[in-house]
Amino acid sequence: MLKNIQHLKMANDNKYWNLEDFVDSLVVELDKTRETLAIKAINKPLTYTVKDLAIDLNIFPTFDGDQIRFITAQPGQEGASKVNIQLGSITDQQVRATTKMSGLKNDTKIEEIGIDTKTQKKLRKLGVSSVDDLQAVEKKQVDIQRATDNEIDYKTLANQIQKSRRNQTPPKVTAVSLSLDEDKRPYLHVRGENLTLDKQYAPVTVINNTLAEVMEFSANELKILLNKDHITQQESELIMTFDPYTLVKMNIRL
């Protein structure tokens, strides 16, 4: 009974759709099937792959003067048109050549890099489902921005990818100590992991809203030159940025 009510509700929610969008979704669904298959085949020696698929739809077309759109026939409706869509075969060799394993440990899914759903779907339509796929496209000198009629802002996308990668290797401070350099100047010695990973970005440090000079930096340490203003004998706020995606804030007593 509940399902009957749901069906009636569904019928009322029936909406018009474009054939192109429908076929796109059909292809995406088949892609997902192939991805599942690649994993399933590891443990199950006898699995089956879709060679071709035909779908018969009972639909009503409508033309709004600009484009033809369709709506599926609802329960009880008669006289619907029939549309038959056939998706051509894909050979076993093609599956091997075109399907990569999904869910590899070091592969980041596009859903995980914080981009909006619309961009995710546009990328999926282009066959891009992970950061690795994006890199493969980049290597082939394909301009994603042009390929999507400027619907994808590649600069924003590249930034999101960098940010996501950085999130996987966050900086970790293990020790902070005061030392003197060869000229007997005081400096703050920060030690840790994943501090400066990209040499093209020099770290910037601020102590109590005053810029502090970075003497040396690497992935494991940072030496910050101190002046008299920095040494207050009180709790001071130290802010370190290692690249545009990383900011570390800590309180220290100098």
Partner: peptide, 23 residues
């Protein structure tokens, strides 16, 4: 008397053989 609209789907499938490298 009030029938759902039945569309139909035909799937032609074949045995899948994974390559040696698992892909």
């Amino acid at each position: 008397s009030f029938r759902p609209s039945y569309h139909s789907i035909t799937i032609n499938a074949e045995k899948y053989t994974a390559s040696e490298d698992g892909e």
